[in-house]
């Protein structure tokens, strides 16, 4: 169901309140407060080990938080169990750094397997949707190929189509270009730009400063499990207030 009138277009699609997460003695997230409005694109920057990937694993509940609340469309999801859990994961699409395509399935099957098994979609309808999605990411000539025969950039675009096939409300991109050869980065970023232009709510962990500057509505800088700075791209990237942000940007922009 769509949100009722009044809560309107600026409602929080996703909201985190005081989220903490530890792995054993390692306190990875130390109180994250964070909000994403519907249709906006938020880029998260930060050094490796700052908790970005863990934040994503909290949001789609692969690693549920110990403390704090996560709200999706105003509904608390952090306490979800069993079938609710699967419901949440369906509404939150995720694309991984290492693609994680299913190697024993073709490009087309990678995209249809979610809808047919999880949503019980009719196979021919699922194939039709998947073909359209693969067309959108420019791979309609690769439907029958297995992942090992695709380049990294092509694999990552299939992975994006696979996530979109579940018709998610939010898409999470976890350093999706970091494992790619440099000449393959653009084709993936182009797909993401297009998605953003179509109004998809996106959270993007990335080191691609150019992409963040062009596409993001907001840029968040994370370090050591906390949000250090959060604002418009121009502010955070060009006039960072915090010393840690300046240092990090200095390192990233140097090369």
């Amino acid at each position: 169901m769509e949100a009722t009138a009044g809560t309107g277009r600026t409602e929080a699609m996703l909201r985190l309140e005081g989220v903490h997460k530890s792995f054993g003695d390692l306190h990875v997230l130390r109180g994250i407060d964070f909000e994403v409005t519907r249709g906006s694109v938020v880029c998260i920057l930060g050094p490796s080990g700052s908790g970005k990937s863990t934040l994503f694993r909290c949001v789609n509940l692969l690693a549920p938080p110990e403390r704090g609340r996560i709200l999706l469309e105003g509904k608390e999801i952090s306490a979800a169990r069993g079938e609710d859990l699967d419901f949440v994961r369906r509404r939150v699409g995720m694309v991984f750094q290492q693609f994680n395509l299913f190697p024993h399935k073709t490009a087309l099957e990678n995209v249809t397997i979610g809808p047919t098994t999880v949503l019980n979609m009719d196979p021919s309808e699922a194939r039709k949707n998947a073909t359209e999605l693969l067309q959108r990411v420019g791979l309609d000539d690769k439907l029958g190929e297995y992942p090992e025969r695709l380049s990294g950039g092509q694999q990552q675009r299939v992975a994006i189509a696979r996530a979109l096939a579940m018709d998610p409300q939010v898409m999470l991109f976890d350093e999706v270009t970091s494992a790619l050869d440099p000449e393959l980065v653009k084709e993936v970023l182009d797909v993401m730009r297009e998605l953003a232009a179509e109004g998809m709510t996106m959270i993007v962990v990335t080191h691609e400063i150019g992409f963040a500057r062009d596409v993001a509505d907001r840029v968040v800088f994370m370090d050591e499990g906390v949000i250090v700075e959060d604002g418009r791209p121009a502010d955070v990237l060009d006039n960072p207030r915090e010393e840690r942000t300046k240092q990090f940007l200095g390192l990233v922009l140097e090369h």
């Binding site: 699967d86 991984f96 299913f102 992975a159």
Partner: peptide, 11 residues
Amino acid sequence: GQSEAARSVGM
């Protein structure tokens, strides 16, 4: 990553 990917499409 395979089981993470499977679970993230809601399986």
